[in-house]
């Protein structure tokens, strides 16, 4: 199956340079792809229209560098700032209606299993906190109850950033936003715990401040979703405009929020089946390493 990503020779003179770069040095069909390819390989994400310094675009970059086989991955997006990036990624993607991204991913995963029975196809849902927790909570939970095998990634910026800063379910208690001047009266929805109880085999909550950790978590989440059951990853991507920060302060904001005792301290839950699967993978890797050195 080598060189599945090719370009028709007739098109070489009319395709834009970015496209040719992607065919030439994009990290398709590379099982060892990761954030270490940054700077030397062409990334699977191009010039998008997110704000300067937006932490969400850092997270998006790290995720696009980490997904295990991009050539056989379909991503499902939803309304929000992420929908400004989805047209600019080099992976098949579907823009769903606001909130029904997990329902679409369910149908897609089943259809792909029928259409390509002999190929591994990954489905990844990537949506904001409004789509995952408020508007689409029904679809999100139902897909976990049914143990649908795909990964759900939630970009948690703790409010509706795209429409001016309204209150969302994942907003922290007491937070004042531009369009929520009274302050939130309820606790932040504990979706990671709900995900665990709803049947997810792998749950992680984190920020995007460490590319190596994002890579590890995304790879685990996709591989477990492929073999075991649903997985959920919640990543803090603060909206610097809505919380009143400068463009260069997003990284520090993420690091502050993941300090011990803070609400985004890295936590993960791995079910016993998923753990034994991961142990099997680690052993296999170890054996390959030993075989390569001897």
């Amino acid at each position: 199956m080598a060189n599945r990503i090719q370009i028709n020779k007739e098109f070489i003179d009319i395709m834009p340079q970015d496209y040719l770069d992607l065919v030439d040095s994009g990290t398709f069909e590379n099982p060892n792809r990761g954030w270490k390819d940054f700077g030397t390989a062409t990334e699977l994400i191009a010039e998008h229209s997110l704000c300067a310094g937006c932490p969400e675009s850092i997270a998006f970059r790290h995720i696009m560098a980490s997904i295990p086989n991009p050539e056989d991955t379909v991503m499902v997006g939803s309304t929000g700032c992420t929908s400004l990036v989805f047209p600019m990624i080099a992976v098949h993607n579907i823009h769903s209606l606001f909130g029904n991204q997990n329902a679409i991913a369910t149908g897609l995963k089943r259809a792909l299993a029928v259409r390509f029975p002999d190929r591994v196809k990954d489905v990844i849902v990537l949506a904001g906190d409004g789509a995952t927790v408020d508007i689409g909570l029904d679809m999100t939970l139902q897909s976990w109850f049914r143990k649908e095998r795909f990964t759900t990634i939630c970009f948690d910026n703790e409010l509706y950033a795209n429409t001016g800063g309204q209150e969302s379910g994942l907003m922290q208690k007491g937070f004042l936003a531009k369009m929520a001047p009274v302050g939130k009266r309820f606790e932040k929805v504990r979706l990671p715990e709900i995900a665990r109880e709803s049947g997810c085999d792998y749950v992680a909550i984190m920020t995007a401040s460490k590319p190596s950790l994002v890579e590890k978590v995304i790879k685990q989440a996709v591989l477990i979703a492929r073999e075991i059951g649903p997985t959920y990853v919640q990543i803090y991507t603060p909206c610097i405009l809505e919380i009143g920060k400068q463009s260069m302060e997003g990284l520090q904001e993420m690091r502050t929020s993941e300090a011990p005792g803070e609400r985004f301290k890295f936590r993960e839950f791995i079910s016993p089946e998923a753990q034994s699967f991961l142990d099997g993978l680690a052993e296999k890797k170890k054996a390959e390493k030993i075989a390569a050195t001897t």
Binding site: F38, G39, I45, A46, P55, R61
Partner: peptide
């Protein structure tokens, strides 16, 4: 690789190999 790692823009900071 700090700047390459944390730049929010894709393919913006490259490594001159």
């Amino acid at each position: 690789r700090l700047c390459i790692m944390y730049c929010p823009e894709a393919n913006c900071i490259q490594l001159d190999s």
